[in-house]
Write a protein that binds this DNA or RNA. Sequence first.
DNA 1: TATGAATGAGCATTCATTCAT
DNA 2: TATGAATGAATGCTCATTCAT
Lengths: 188, 188, 188, 188
Amino acid sequence: MTADRPLRADARRNRAKVLEAAETVFATRGTGASTEEIAQAAGVGIGTVFRHFPTKEALLEAVFLSRLDRLAAQLRAAADQPDPGRAFREQIALAVDASPAKNAIADALAAAGVELDAVKAGVGTGVRDALDLLLRRAQSAGAVRADLDVPTVMALLIGASYGVEAAGDDRGRRALVINVLLDGMSAG
Amino acid sequence: MTADRPLRADARRNRAKVLEAAETVFATRGTGASTEEIAQAAGVGIGTVFRHFPTKEALLEAVFLSRLDRLAAQLRAAADQPDPGRAFREQIALAVDASPAKNAIADALAAAGVELDAVKAGVGTGVRDALDLLLRRAQSAGAVRADLDVPTVMALLIGASYGVEAAGDDRGRRALVINVLLDGMSAG
Amino acid sequence: MTADRPLRADARRNRAKVLEAAETVFATRGTGASTEEIAQAAGVGIGTVFRHFPTKEALLEAVFLSRLDRLAAQLRAAADQPDPGRAFREQIALAVDASPAKNAIADALAAAGVELDAVKAGVGTGVRDALDLLLRRAQSAGAVRADLDVPTVMALLIGASYGVEAAGDDRGRRALVINVLLDGMSAG
Amino acid sequence: MTADRPLRADARRNRAKVLEAAETVFATRGTGASTEEIAQAAGVGIGTVFRHFPTKEALLEAVFLSRLDRLAAQLRAAADQPDPGRAFREQIALAVDASPAKNAIADALAAAGVELDAVKAGVGTGVRDALDLLLRRAQSAGAVRADLDVPTVMALLIGASYGVEAAGDDRGRRALVINVLLDGMSAG
DNA sequence: TATGAATGAGCATTCATTCAT
DNA sequence: TATGAATGAATGCTCATTCAT
């Protein structure tokens, strides 16, 4: 009975608009931003936000997952670069530098009692697998210490994200933070 | 700056009770915990909380600063240990492992638009100076890379706190995270 | 008054489906049930519900009237039974026992400020006339007190419906409530 | 620590104001009336309403219980009248005639899934016991049929309340409804 | 005509903050 | 100075109704 086309195009567009607006607003004003504010930023009625995301928590989660999806895609794209050590380093640096806003969202979700691991697991083979590949290759190439596994690298990534955030606007300092992390991860 | 009328003994006691309760409650239930809940935990009326801390933000700030004060004291106590490199490493590890709950508070403050740097500066010569001493000595001893300065170390500390938190309950993983950080900071 | 273009066959079918679903849903989940829920139960889109009943109130009214229609038909069918007193008693008992769900609807309508009398008048010669016939015959036969008129009997019916509802699931108690009512209405 | 006097006087007065306003507003505009409206009618802030009644449901319940309490008091006061049959009849008539607005509240509570019986039981020995006394005495005096028990009388009372309400403004008709009920309850 | 996405007014509830006692 | 009742702005969420497809 219910197909998936007619107005579905508009609906999908609205969903995307909301998601995008939410990402921006949460990043800008924090996760405490009101749903109303997001609706306005998206240019839709508040009812529309709740139609697509039945709960503020659901919206937060969706934003978080969409970020993780993008990260996974990015990591995957780097998997076939020639120099495994370099690929690893570059991706870590990129991931860390891009993530500050994600942290707040993760925090908010955690505060709401959401099982973050479960959520991440939902991304499935996403980030985890992509990272796994990058890491293994870098370790095989002798570029990264052998005692690191994916969960630990993820913890380090998260930490570095906050570290970079704490470093403020000073480009040099941010780079230094990342550099320390990479040095710590390198073999030898 | 602020006139510091010594504060009647019972008043001071109340202030301390509130601060302590706030630290516990914020750590336990998150910074979203209501002021009322803190008042109850402290065994005082809500009016008393607001008499001592005119704003929830002020209370959060006070809790954060009190933690920093304790950290400063700890760092200072380590300044005269014989082996500067070891002292540095030990203190970093200690600070990081003890800090998880602090993070949420710093986040909340940041979200509230409080200039964290300013606040930290307010601890004055506290953490900053103690850390400066430890760092310089370790660098002179050739145990820590020379391109690190205090603000960067603080950023790294903050990041490592979150990293450890993200590592979860796995003792080994937590240690590994700290280890990576220390390796990254070490000279050579 | 209202132009009654025969309504395309499928349209009529939809109208009936909605009415039926509404009756069930209102009875099951109360009159606070959302229109959306009714649409789903009827297997139609929400737009269709509103096409046939421009207002939730209108839908409620239609359900109510449809019940009254059935009641009228039932009363009419009993009009030619041989024993007028017995017919009256049986019909009263039947009407009362079947009506609990109707009460909630009548309440909701009343709460919405609908003139219930006007609505009932709309059923026209329906319940009123059928009841009139039954009552007169029973009174003529000396089975029912002479000071009762149709409006009063209707008020008693409504009251008894709620009484039975209040009696709960206890079959014996429900019967007793009806019995008291019938005794009160009987002559002598 | 917490005594029960100082500002308690004001608080109690406010609680009473809210309860009274709620009773009026619910009776006037139905139980769908907004809490805000009640706050305004009571001349207090909306927060005050929620301080005293943590939920709209709780407020509804309190209003209902307060009515039942008054009814119980009234019934109890009639217990020592000389003529038990007369006392019973008078009290039933009074209770029924005074109750219209109560019905809506009972309905709302029932709709909210509140166990009405439990609530009524909470009035404790209130209405139930007072009614029990009246009923027994009237039955002993041979004025009321012996097969009635308290729960059934309560169901009849509720039904009669609605019946009277349905009878509208016509004094004569209202009296007739009550009369039928009393006749049905009388012995012989 | 049917559909269901969009809309936004309306509601219950929370909580930081104020102030009378 | 301590208390806790009062306040009301703000928020998440629901639902009847509209309208583009």
